[in-house]
Structures are given as structure tokens and as C-alpha cells.
């Protein structure tokens, strides 16, 4: 399962740490050259590249803020120097948690812009090449919070729910071109993004599987959607959440 099947590159946004890093490492292990996108954490992104290269994989740094057009172009310039982007993992995300009644406009805008706008415009940029290749894989990293909600995360929940809608409509648009569009909804995964959500030992006890989910387990699901084995699956949301939404 999961072997590279086309002459393209896999672009993972937000790959300097956490789920993005795990996805980049996994896709590289499956044979894809990987473009490691990051916005500001150059050291983290370099670590991701080093991890891949130490295992015999190929990776390039692709710096750019995917919440704006210039950042997306910078990112694709670096990735396409290797090959057309045929696998895209829209993982870049931010959190600006606060109660809706207290939420500032920029706290709403930042989260929508990076988590939802970023995924759409990055997908749009990748699509032309996927369409002409008549093959492509887009995997959007949403969240269980986009499916069931969480107090204090109206911005994040709206962006992640929007990503589910984007996934389904885009999947229908491009299905006849051999392009699949799917989403992964991680539950509680210990990453820098989830720091501050609570004590992880206590949270683990509330999980049906009795532990939190590892980033590598999310990466395995992403790699499956990127594989040829998943060619008949599109427009779907797979919860990798230790049973949170069961």
C-alpha cells in the first residue's frame, strides 16, 4: 500500500512539526519526493527534511504562508522545481481559541484565512496540474471539532466544518479526472497545536481507546488516501480519533 505511482511531488503544508511532519515523513517513506511547507518555523522544517533524508527519502523546503496568494506561489515555486504537485496535504492550521462573545475580528479572520482559505487556494493552485495529469490526491486535515463542535472554538470549528464542505464539493468536480479529495478528522493528537487544551494524561482517560492518538496514526490515514488503493474513495471524511465520535 501507499507506493508512489506518478512522477509528481507531495506537498504537505504546515510540515515543520506535528501531523504535517508525520505526514511528510510517511509520504517520503512511500516513495514520494516531499515539499515541506512552513511559514515561520524554518528550524522545524529543516528537521523534517533531515528526518526524511536520513531515511533515504527526498525532500525540499517550501517556505510560504498559505493564507495569502504570494505565499502560495512561493510554496509552489519550490515544490514544482522538483515536479508537479500531484499529492497535496492541506494541513497548515492555527488556533485562536476564545469565547465567541469575546472574539476579536482578527481572531476569527486569522483562523478562517489559514485553515479554510489557505486550503482552498492551495488546492486551486494544484488542480490545473492534477487535471492535466489526470491524476491527483488532495487530503484535507480537518478536525472532529468541525463535526461536533467545541466551546471556545467557533472560528476553528467553522473553518474545519467548511473544509468538510469544500472536500465534498471539490471531490465531485474533479472525480472524472482521477483526482480524489478526502479529509481526515483527527481527534486528540498531542502536537504543538493542541498544547493548552488540558492535561494529556487526564484527557487520555476520556478517550474510548484509553490514550491519545499519535501523529503517525494520522499520517498513515493520509498516506492511504494518497495511495492508488484509495482511488475509489472520494469526498469522504475519515475520523482518526480513538473513538471520540463513535
Amino acid at each position: 500500500m501507499g507506493c508512489r505511482v506518478r512522477d509528481g511531488v507531495a506537498l504537505v503544508t504546515g510540515a515543520s512539526r506535528g501531523i504535517g511532519r508525520a505526514a511528510a515523513v510517511r509520504l517520503a517513506a512511500d516513495g514520494w519526493p516531499v515539499a515541506v511547507n512552513y511559514r515561520s518555523d524554518a528550524e522545524g522544517a529543516k528537521e523534517t527534511v533531515a528526518l526524511i533524508e536520513s531515511s533515504g527519502g527526498q525532500a525540499v523546503l517550501a517556505c510560504g504562508d498559505v493564507s495569502n496568494a504570494d505565499g502560495i506561489e512561493e510554496t509552489f515555486a519550490a515544490a514544482e522545481a522538483v515536479a508537479p504537485v500531484l499529492v497535496l496535504v492541506n494541513n497548515a492550521g492555527v488556533r485562536r481559541d476564545t469565547l465567541a462573545a469575546m472574539m476579536k475580528r482578527d481572531e476569527w479572520d486569522d483562523v478562517i484565512r489559514t485553515n479554510l482559505d489557505g486550503a482552498f487556494f492551495t488546492s486551486k493552485r494544484a488542480l490545473k496540474r492534477m487535471i492535466s495529469a489526470r491524476w491527483g490526491r488532495i487530503v484535507n486535515v480537518t478536525s472532529v471539532i468541525g463535526l461536533r463542535g467545541n466551546a471556545g472554538q467557533t472560528n476553528y470549528g467553522a473553518a474545519k466544518a467548511g473544509l468538510v464542505g469544500l472536500t465534498k464539493s471539490l471531490a465531485l468536480e474533479v472525480a472524472k479526472r482521477g483526482i480524489t479529495v478526502n479529509a481526515i478528522a483527527p481527534g486528540l493528537v498531542k502536537t504543538a497545536l493542541t498544547e493548552g487544551l488540558g492535561n494529556f494524561d487526564d484527557l487520555a482517560k476520556t478517550m474510548p481507546i484509553g490514550r491519545i492518538v499519535e501523529a503517525e496514526e494520522i499520517a498513515a490515514a493520509i498516506a492511504f488516501f494518497a495511495s492508488e488503493d484509495a482511488a475509489a474513495i472520494t469526498g469522504q471524511v475519515l475520523c482518526v480519533d480513538g473513538g471520540m465520535t463513535a
Binding site: 488542480l127 490545473k128 496540474r129 487535471i131 492535466s132 489526470r134 468536480e173 474533479v174 472524472k176 479526472r177
Partner: peptide, 13 residues
Amino acid sequence: SLDLVELSVRLED
């Protein structure tokens, strides 16, 4: 319309 997008990419190249 999707064919037209694909054709446009080929003409771009």
C-alpha cells in the same frame, strides 16, 4: 468545462 481547463493547461505549456 473541466476539459476546457485541461486544454488551457496544455496550451499554457
